[in-house]
Amino acid sequence: MTAAGTLTRTGRGSRLVGLGALLLLAAVAVLLSLGLGAQALHPAEVWQALVHPDGSDATAVVRELRGPRTVLGVLVGLALGAAGALMQGHTRNPIADPGLLGVSAGASLAVVLAISIFKINDFHGYVWFAFAGALVASVLVFSLGAAGAGGPTPVTLALAGMALSALFASFTSSILINDPDTLSVFRFWVVGSLAGRDYATAWAVLPFIVAGLIVAAINAPALNALGLGEDVARALGQNIVVARTLGVTAIVLLAGAATAAVGPLAFAGLIVPHIARVLTGPDHRWLVPFAALLGVSLVLIADVAGRLIASPAELQTGIVLAFVGAPFFIWLVRRIRMVRL
């Protein structure tokens, strides 16, 4: 462990600077999210509205319209970034996204049921359905993936996740194919968007995201040992089953809460860890916080871009992430030699 210690010490200074820069970037993204939209506000006006709220239009826009989605963007960005880093760390698979453990598919099925059976028609009404669906699905995935002789290995977890996700997706489709009314509502949830959410949604998911981030922070150091292979990790004193269970708990809390709040935006959790890994290398003690902060910037900037591109209408956050995030990711993969898992 001496070699690892030395390596970390030499890199610590520059990594702290990097963390500071990412914090700054996230703060700028928050300001942009509060200031930009159909009506652009000067940063001074934003500050005024935050610190000394008055009855002006600016105060109403900042606090009532852009406030909730900004808070949600911060929470969801943190959650998806951290969950993505953990997911790829545990599976050691670069194409694993945080929705893989059944979270996205389970939440989608639950929301479809909420629309078609309970006739629920507003985004806040979906939160608990989506969260429950995500939890049930991922508990199923984990119990099946862990039930084999080898315990919860990354490959069995990932395969069980893919398989059950496809199963849930086919139930979802079979409902939607015979129910166009539900489909016409559901298609706006399933792209993922921060628009039209209120503070109540943010408060509902806040405890789960905070708990998830704490578990993620506890779990991150273990991933460095697990990355050497399970046998080496065991020899280094890691309890593999505990580490895997903590990791899955964190991923499910974070990705489940994020999906419940804004719909499936798992793509953010897929690309952010790759970008963060370029900055930090494979050390998960740094990778997880870097990915979380980058997630905030990415989600907020995508949301702001969606407001500006189609102004005065809006383009959904998930669509912007695909249209802007994907080309950026491709550019990045071409430019920089990606750090392998």
Binding site: P94, I319, A322, F323, G325, A326, M338
Partner: peptide, 15 residues
């Protein structure tokens, strides 16, 4: 990785 990014872009166009 590039296929993954491009797939998301194309899925976004479909949505």
């Amino acid at each position: 990785l590039i296929g993954l990014g491009a797939g998301q872009l194309l899925a976004g166009i479909t949505s």
